[in-house]
């Protein structure tokens, strides 16, 4: 696992319709120590996805620096695993081959990467789905595959942009429980984008509140682990913290 550091990061988009430049992010600084889980929340349009896409290397940044383990980011790379809101599984590959894709790109032989993929699928309770195609799975199962596909490539940092936004509420809570468990076992460095405040608090060590392109607040979450919804739904400290963050987001 590695640290993720954003230093005075900014992003200016060129607006084709207006014919003018538009600053989406000004001067974002954020340090995520190795093995820490940080959630970023904020109202729609405040620049959450922009941050994640720049860290992933999908779009260039306009100013400042992005460092992963001290190294500047230049384009996408296997050191940063990404989980997409739209799952982004390869429809023409089986679940097993989707999960084995990262190892395949590293040149791991077929038998070995199948073994890796099976091990990760087992972790997400998906062993039975290995030979199926993504379209044969429910949304919740697809996103489990999305998460283990990213993990199976052993990234230094895991980036997630509203990964559970397109599944139903019940499934979402199960997935949050599972992600929490997986994080506790493996301790990856995580940057997790969401606009769901309870989700952000439930999962993270710290919640960063973003407002109109800058950091409004950085709230630590000192709730003990392991965290499961069964315990936390009624937990006063959890509720209080959630309300506090919610108030910050509202004021943003």
């Amino acid at each position: 696992m590695k640290t993720l550091s954003l230093q005075n990061l900014s992003k200016t988009y060129y607006d084709l319709y207006e014919g003018s430049h538009h600053t989406a992010l000004h001067d974002i600084s954020l340090d995520i120590p190795a093995g820490e889980f940080v959630s970023v929340v904020g109202p729609s349009g405040c620049g959450k996805s922009t941050i994640l896409n720049m860290v992933a290397g999908f779009i260039p940044h306009s100013g400042g620096e992005i460092l992963v383990g001290g190294q500047p980011v230049k384009g996408p790379g296997r050191d940063r695993g990404v989980v997409f809101q739209s799952f982004a599984l390869f429809p023409w590959k089986t679940v097993l081959d989707n999960v084995g894709f990262g190892p395949k790109m590293r040149g791991v032989p077929k038998a070995e990467r199948d073994e890796i993929a099976r091990e990760y699928l087992a972790m997400a309770g998906l062993s039975h789905a290995a030979d199926r195609y993504p379209n044969e799975l429910s949304g919740g199962m697809q996103q489990r595959v999305g998460v283990v596909r990213a993990l199976a490539n052993k990234p230094d940092v895991l980036l997630m942009d509203e990964p559970f936004a397109s599944v139903d509420a019940q499934t979402r809570m199960t997935l949050q429980d599972e992600l929490s468990r997986i994080w506790e076992e493996r301790r990856p460095t995580v940057l997790f984008i969401t606009h769901d405040v309870p989700e952000a608090v439930f999962l993270a060590n710290r919640v960063v509140v973003l407002s109109k392109g800058h950091v409004l607040a950085d709230v630590p979450v000192p709730i003990e682990r392991p965290r499961v919804w069964d315990k936390l739904v009624e937990d006063d400290a959890f509720k209080e913290l959630s309300n506090k963050v919610l108030a910050l987001v509202r004021s943003a």
Binding site: G57, G77, F90, G102, R149
Partner: peptide, 15 residues
């Protein structure tokens, strides 16, 4: 092809 599939492949190490 959704851009996210290309991005996914690139971030999994595809050249």
């Amino acid at each position: 092809i959704p851009m996210s599939l290309r991005n996914a492949a690139a971030s999994l190490g595809a050249g």
